[in-house]
Design a protein around this nucleic acid. Sequence first.
RNA 1: CGGGGCGUAGCGCAGUCCGGUUUAGCGCGCAUGGUUUGGGACCAUGAGGUCCUCGGUUCAAAUCCGAGCGCCCCGACCA
Length: 388
Amino acid sequence: MRWTKYFLPTSKEPPKDAEIVSHKLMSRAGMIDKISSGVYTYFPFGYRALKKVERIVREEMDRTGAVEFLMPALQPASLWKESGRLDEMGEEMIRFTDRHKRLMLFGPTHEEIVTDTVRKNINSWKQLPITLYQIQTKFRDEMRPRFGVVRAREFLMKDAYSFDRDEKGLEESYQKMRVAYTRIFKRCGLDCSIQQADSGVIGGKFSEEFVAKGECPELEVGHIFKLGTKYSESMKTFFIDSSGKEAPAVMGCYGIGVSRIVPAIIEGNNDDRGIVWPLSVAPFSVLLVPVNLENAAISGVGEKLYGALIDNGIDALYDDRDISAGMKFSDGDLIGIPLWAVIGKKFTEKGKIEIKIRKENRFVEVGVENATDWIIDYINKEKRCTTL
RNA sequence: CGGGGCGUAGCGCAGUCCGGUUUAGCGCGCAUGGUUUGGGACCAUGAGGUCCUCGGUUCAAAUCCGAGCGCCCCGACCA
């Protein structure tokens, strides 16, 4: 991507309402833009980070054998009446009456829908166990949104629901998810602890939450629940077991605040100059910095290197703006791309590209012809470390 | 939802107490021209405003009064 063709508005000053470092940096680095209290637009740079996280989540969920699908954000209140949660959820749930005077809501979570799906389509023990998941926008009318996208009223969530024949099966499904969660957060560069938690409105008998470390008092980035038969009993989700008797499916549900992971990563990966992305979730892997575009030799090599990186499938951002070197470096630090390839002084003096490793603040000089290979090697090496 | 604060150019703010030299300013950003080009450069010129909205007081309102809307902070709440 060429910076001049991209939409990446950076700024020196954080917005006045930003309190925590991740919120300040996400705003300054042109990742998000507040539209209303707790409601944000993801700008392209922020959206890329979100998609990187989403991909890791998806890969790890698929690895457990969970099956991806998509439920509606818009839901009829009637299903919630059935489960008994219509009154329980209160004002946090965004409700409205449609033109037919039917009470509708924007889903804050999806136990009711998925339970309905399973009761209509699964009736034998042979079809179990199954775990379904989706990555979708959730709506919660938080009393007090804050910390940027950390506690928003509209946010992206991965929610998974397991259905088992019995308690033993639930235990297995639950443990699979627990392992997957650990892998997901590790791959995202998050340092998480697992704590036993209150199950709240979701209910069930046991739950654990994954809490990311950082100055931010929130997060919690994931929460897994053993629901048991709370929903399957109230919503009559029964199957015929191997002895021919009717039994309620034993459920678990597992949430990850996908959009919350992004600020959590930044909380743990920044310095006084800006974000320091882990390679696994960085919006771009490489930042290409030609120091002076009016120097034909520099811009020539810049173009060549950019082309070579793109041809090799490396997601590179080419800073082709005609601005001072200082500005490029400052913006580069702010947006925190892991690898930089600087074409400047060392190039005009001795034909070397300077590769900066952002997190180590270390420079490596590489000959022009070796730069692409060096970068590819580095990226592959890092990938091996973080894929486990 | 209780308590507090704020709303003036794209962003950050001063001016509001004490109404009138204010043509409503400053910094950043933006545009044009020139000098620059390894850590947010400099000079010159310029564009950009329903002073949150509505109503009231007054000869006169960004400034005083009332209502509304929006945003933030503290608390309570939060799969």
